[in-house]
Simulated assay, not measured.
Amino acid sequence: MRFVDRVTADGADGWPVEAGRYRLVINRACPWANRTVIVRRLMGLDEVISLAVTDPIQELIAGEVHWVFTAETGSPGGLDPVLGVHALRDSYLKRDPDYDGGVSVPGLVDVPSGHLVSNDYDQLTLDFGSEWKRFHREGAPDLYPERQRDEIDSVNEFVYRDVANGVYRSGFAPSQASYDRAVRILFDGLDRLEDRLTRQRYLLGDHVTEADVRLFPTLARFDAVYHGHFKCNVRKLIEYPALWAYARDLFQTPGFGDTTHFDHIRRHYYGVHTAINPTRVVAVGPDPAAWLTPHFREQLGGSPFGDGTPPEPPPAIDRVPVVVPL
Results as ranks from 00 to 15, higher is better:
residue 120 D to S: 05
residue 125 T to S: 10
residue 255 G to C: 04
residue 229 H to A: 10
residue 106 P to W: 03
residue 303 S to R: 14
residue 100 D to H: 06
residue 247 A to G: 14
residue 132 W to T: 05
residue 234 V to N: 12
residue 95 R to V: 00
residue 2 R to T: 14
residue 121 Y to V: 01
residue 219 L to H: 07
residue 131 E to N: 11
residue 141 P to T: 04
residue 26 I to Y: 08
residue 305 F to H: 02
residue 94 K to F: 03
residue 207 H to Q: 11
residue 99 Y to R: 03
residue 125 T to A: 12
residue 174 P to A: 03
residue 288 P to A: 01
residue 287 D to G: 03
residue 154 S to G: 06
residue 97 P to C: 05
residue 229 H to I: 02
residue 14 G to Y: 08
residue 309 T to Y: 01
residue 158 F to K: 14
residue 147 R to Q: 15
residue 177 A to L: 09
residue 134 R to F: 11
residue 197 L to H: 13
residue 53 V to K: 11
residue 117 V to I: 11
residue 322 V to A: 14
residue 142 D to V: 06
residue 135 F to Y: 09
residue 48 V to N: 08
residue 33 A to K: 15
residue 287 D to Q: 06
residue 166 G to S: 08
residue 154 S to P: 00
residue 68 V to D: 10
residue 270 Y to H: 10
residue 121 Y to S: 09
residue 48 V to W: 05
residue 8 T to N: 05
residue 195 D to S: 10
residue 190 L to E: 11
residue 43 M to Q: 02
residue 254 P to M: 06
residue 80 D to T: 11
residue 104 S to K: 12
residue 89 R to K: 13
residue 238 I to V: 09
residue 46 D to H: 14
residue 292 L to N: 04
residue 149 R to T: 14
residue 150 D to E: 15
residue 42 L to I: 03
residue 16 P to T: 04
residue 281 V to M: 12
residue 121 Y to F: 10
residue 101 G to T: 06
residue 149 R to D: 04
residue 56 P to W: 09
residue 66 H to P: 06
residue 183 V to F: 03
residue 99 Y to E: 13
residue 266 R to Y: 00
residue 275 A to L: 15
residue 45 L to G: 01
residue 28 R to W: 15
residue 59 E to D: 06
residue 140 A to T: 09
residue 192 R to F: 12
residue 211 A to D: 12
residue 209 T to R: 00
residue 113 S to G: 14
residue 97 P to I: 13
residue 230 F to L: 02
residue 141 P to M: 00
residue 261 H to L: 03
residue 12 A to Y: 11
residue 124 L to W: 02
residue 36 T to F: 11
residue 267 R to C: 11
residue 155 V to D: 13
residue 67 W to C: 04
residue 323 V to F: 00
residue 133 K to P: 08
residue 301 G to V: 04
residue 293 T to F: 04
residue 232 C to Q: 02
